[in-house]
């Protein structure tokens, strides 16, 4: 464990806590894409298949449980909670996220470390996570005013993978055999997708105005 990875995990955890706070405090999920949340739940479920087989550390197991349970809880809230579900922008959240699932699956079947169920699912989860934010970014462009908590949620979600890239650079230079090109490329794509969001987030912060993504 190195400081970049720990910072990445904490930033990721913080983004989930901000989203839970927003939904719990405002009893609203307006501006949040259910499709992105469903994709994240699928990412965690396919990536953490080893939860019950490989024990790496208490930290690793606890964090996996937190990510799986929080993503499922958010999806449940947005689909079934009597109050929250009515605030979901159903007609705005129209990204065809099944294409992202299909594309990631094809990529995982073509490019993986080893052709085993676990490794193909792992690669699938890495590719899917790289594009899972797209429905959310499209929804942000459509919804006029982005509330602060939603903006902070997306910001921390983007920042966490940037920390992971620093972690991979660090591990590449400190551990002999460490060179995983799959998360490398997917992580760069993932962080790249946030580039314009980060730019407009920075402008809104600098000019102290509401975050507004150009359509």
């Amino acid at each position: 464990m190195n400081v970049f990875r720990f910072a990445g995990d904490m930033t990721h955890l913080f983004s989930v806590l901000v989203l839970l706070l927003k939904i719990y405090a405002t009893k609203s999920c307006s501006g949040i894409s259910l499709k992105t949340q469903e994709l994240y739940a699928l990412v965690f479920l396919t990536r953490y298949l080893d939860l019950l087989t490989d024990f790496i550390s208490l930290y690793n197991t606890v964090m996996k449980l937190v990510f799986i349970s929080s993503s499922l809880a958010i999806v449940w809230c947005m689909r079934a909670h009597p109050v929250v579900r009515r605030t979901y922008d159903k007609d705005q959240d129209t990204f065809r996220h099944y294409t992202l699932v299909a594309g990631s699956l094809v990529l995982a079947l073509l490019f993986h470390d080893r052709f085993t169920i676990r490794e193909v699912c792992w690669a699938f989860s890495i590719y899917l996570e790289a594009v899972a934010i797209l429905p959310q970014l499209v929804l942000l462009q459509r919804s006029r005013n982005v509330d602060n908590l939603t903006g902070q949620y997306v910001f921390f979600l983007g920042a966490y993978r940037a920390f992971y890239i620093l972690n991979w650079i660090y591990r590449y230079f400190t551990e002999q055999h460490f060179s995983r090109w799959i998360p490398w490329i997917a992580g760069l794509v993932q962080t790249g997708l946030y580039a314009d969001f980060f730019y407009y987030y920075y402008l809104s912060w600098k000019n102290n105005v509401k975050l507004q993504l150009p359509a």
Binding site: R47, I56, M63, K64, D113, Y164, N167
Partner: peptide
Amino acid sequence: TQPEEPHDEL
């Protein structure tokens, strides 16, 4: 192919 180490990252 990659060595057999488990995925120790989240």
